[in-house]
Computed example of a mutant assay.
Amino acid sequence: MNYSKITFLILFLFIGGYTVQAQSLKVPKMDMSSQLLGILDKGADGLSLSSDQKGKLTTDNKSFVDKLMKIQNGSGSDDEKKEGFLNLKNSRTKFLTDLLGSGLFQKYSGNILKSINPLKSKLGLAALAF
């Protein structure tokens, strides 16, 4: 009688454990470019930008991420990639300063840097562009 109770208990725990594992939540992983684009677009929240500024910023964000990924996935040496990221950063800074002005640019950059920090290790050399 005790043997059947122990067997039933072990079987019950095994099936229960399997059921719990089968119900675990699986979060889809976003690719790096989607994550970056989301961060860049969300960084403008609360800045009171005009619709024209938001449109230009969204378009430039997409272009920036595309260029960033092209450099990162390119076949150039590390030094060539560093140079490409720094050039991209400089042109992006000029564009954002012209579009937003220096005050809003500082706020936008601060928002971006706070959000990008957890991804810096995954970005590698591409983190130089921020």
Rank of each mutant, 00 (worst) to 15 (best):
residue 59 T to N: 15
residue 92 R to C: 03
residue 96 L to F: 10
residue 62 K to P: 02
residue 58 T to Y: 11
residue 93 T to P: 02
residue 63 S to F: 11
residue 78 D to A: 15
residue 90 N to Q: 12
residue 89 K to M: 09
residue 56 K to Q: 14
residue 64 F to L: 02
residue 55 G to L: 08
residue 73 N to W: 07
residue 64 F to T: 04
residue 101 G to H: 06
residue 74 G to L: 03
residue 73 N to F: 09
residue 106 Q to G: 11
residue 60 D to A: 13
residue 61 N to A: 07
residue 62 K to W: 06
residue 72 Q to C: 08
residue 92 R to T: 11
residue 62 K to H: 10
residue 60 D to N: 15
residue 78 D to K: 14
residue 77 S to H: 06
residue 91 S to L: 07
residue 97 T to V: 12
residue 66 D to S: 09
residue 91 S to Q: 14
residue 73 N to H: 11
residue 92 R to H: 14
residue 106 Q to M: 14
residue 66 D to T: 09
residue 74 G to P: 01
residue 61 N to R: 07
residue 66 D to V: 04
residue 80 E to A: 10
residue 59 T to M: 14
residue 83 E to R: 14
residue 78 D to V: 12
residue 68 L to P: 02
residue 60 D to E: 15
residue 71 I to S: 01
residue 70 K to C: 08
residue 101 G to F: 06
residue 58 T to W: 09
residue 86 L to D: 07
residue 76 G to W: 01
residue 68 L to N: 05
residue 100 L to P: 03
residue 70 K to V: 12
residue 57 L to I: 07
residue 64 F to D: 05
residue 78 D to N: 14
residue 100 L to N: 02
residue 85 F to L: 05
residue 61 N to F: 02
residue 82 K to I: 09
residue 100 L to F: 07
residue 98 D to V: 05
residue 84 G to Q: 02
residue 84 G to T: 00
residue 100 L to K: 00
residue 68 L to E: 01
residue 86 L to K: 10
residue 99 L to M: 01
residue 58 T to F: 12
residue 71 I to G: 03
residue 68 L to C: 01
residue 94 K to S: 10
residue 80 E to T: 09
residue 89 K to N: 11
residue 99 L to V: 04
residue 83 E to N: 14
residue 102 S to H: 12
residue 81 K to G: 00
residue 88 L to E: 04
residue 102 S to A: 15
residue 100 L to W: 06
residue 64 F to H: 05
residue 86 L to F: 07
residue 67 K to E: 13
residue 66 D to M: 00
residue 106 Q to P: 08
residue 86 L to T: 10
residue 85 F to V: 06
residue 59 T to L: 15
residue 71 I to W: 06
residue 74 G to V: 01
residue 102 S to E: 15
residue 55 G to M: 09
residue 57 L to D: 02
residue 95 F to P: 05
residue 105 F to Y: 15
residue 87 N to Y: 00
residue 101 G to W: 00
residue 88 L to M: 06
residue 56 K to H: 10
residue 85 F to N: 05
residue 98 D to A: 07
residue 67 K to D: 13
residue 104 L to R: 12
residue 79 D to P: 05
residue 76 G to Y: 01
residue 91 S to A: 11
residue 84 G to V: 01
residue 96 L to Y: 09
residue 81 K to V: 01
residue 80 E to F: 06
residue 76 G to N: 10
residue 98 D to H: 03
residue 68 L to H: 04
residue 103 G to P: 11
residue 67 K to C: 06
residue 64 F to I: 02
residue 105 F to T: 15
residue 61 N to S: 11
residue 88 L to C: 08
residue 88 L to W: 03
residue 66 D to I: 05
residue 63 S to A: 15
residue 81 K to T: 06
residue 101 G to Y: 02
residue 106 Q to K: 15
